[in-house]
């Protein structure tokens, strides 16, 4: 369970957000530049809030600028918008970079059907394949929470739907909190157990979709 209540001054507005996530898919929905990615960065430890608290499974990740768990110790999987695969490493080296258990990664590779890509470089694979590789890499560390920053935005419509279905399937297996950023409302409705609407740094409303538990 993730609980977050943070404030952070950005260039043109103040981010002031309170949200929680059980083992469910939570969507942060809102226009570009509304502070969605900054929220993910604060959870991952890549950005520091000005004040507030972030706790994950009752362990405080952030209490103040001085009481802050470093990025490396948070054990949070992060799938970046442009995937951020290591371009000079093969798919195999990308996935095993932070992996903890070989056997677990082996299963992951089979579930995501990327075994045939292992010796290729990121430049040699398609957008949908990159997305699956990046997801495998993020999950290979056995994270307690998964952050997804517009994971399907670079994909064609039909691949996008396949990947969305795959993520829903994966979530049923893994059952960890997933926080996903999107500005596509249909996608939000399809994927979410819970939706937070973010606008200029404020959580303006919380809609529970038909899919909620």
């Amino acid at each position: 369970m993730l609980f977050l209540e943070i404030r952070k001054k950005l260039t043109s507005f103040e981010l002031n957000v309170q949200l929680k996530a059980k083992n469910e898919i939570v969507i942060l929905f809102g226009p570009s530049g509304s502070g969605k990615t900054t929220i993910l960065n604060c959870i991952a430890g890549l950005a520091t809030p000005d004040s507030g608290t972030i706790t994950l499974n009752n362990i405080p990740l952030f209490k103040s600028k001085k009481e802050c768990v470093p990025i490396q110790k948070r054990n949070i999987g992060y799938l970046f918008q442009d995937y951020a695969l290591f371009p000079h490493m093969t798919v195999k080296k990308n996935i095993y970079y932070g992996a903890r258990e070989q056997e677990f990664v082996h299963q992951l590779v089979q579930v995501l059907e990327i075994g045939h890509l292992m010796e290729k470089y990121p430049r040699q694979i398609s957008g949908g394949e990159k997305q699956r590789v990046a997801l495998a890499r993020a999950l290979a560390t056995k994270p307690q929470l998964l952050l997804l920053d517009e994971p399907f935005s670079a994909l064609d419509q039909h691949i996008r739907q396949e990947c969305q279905d795959e993520l829903l399937r994966l979530h049923q297996t893994w059952n960890i909190p997933v926080i996903m950023v999107t500005h596509d409302y249909q996608e939000a409705q399809k994927m979410a157990d819970r939706i937070y609407k973010i606008n200029k740094g404020q959580v303006s409303e919380e809609i529970k979709s038909n899919f909620s538990q």
């Binding site: 991952a44 430890g45 890549l46 990025i71 490396q72 110790k73 948070r74 054990n75 949070i76 999987g77 992060y78 970046f80 442009d82 951020a84 695969l85 290591f86 371009p87 970079y97 932070g98 890499r137 993020a138 290979a140 560390t141």
Partner: peptide
């Protein structure tokens, strides 16, 4: 000259700053 998120990705996977420097 390269995307900062490539380094960030390595950090979120638990790599130390030293490891990120030498491997990424």
């Amino acid at each position: 000259n390269f995307d900062l998120n490539i380094e960030n990705a390595a950090l979120t996977m638990g790599a130390s700053k030293w490891k990120v420097f030498w491997t990424i």
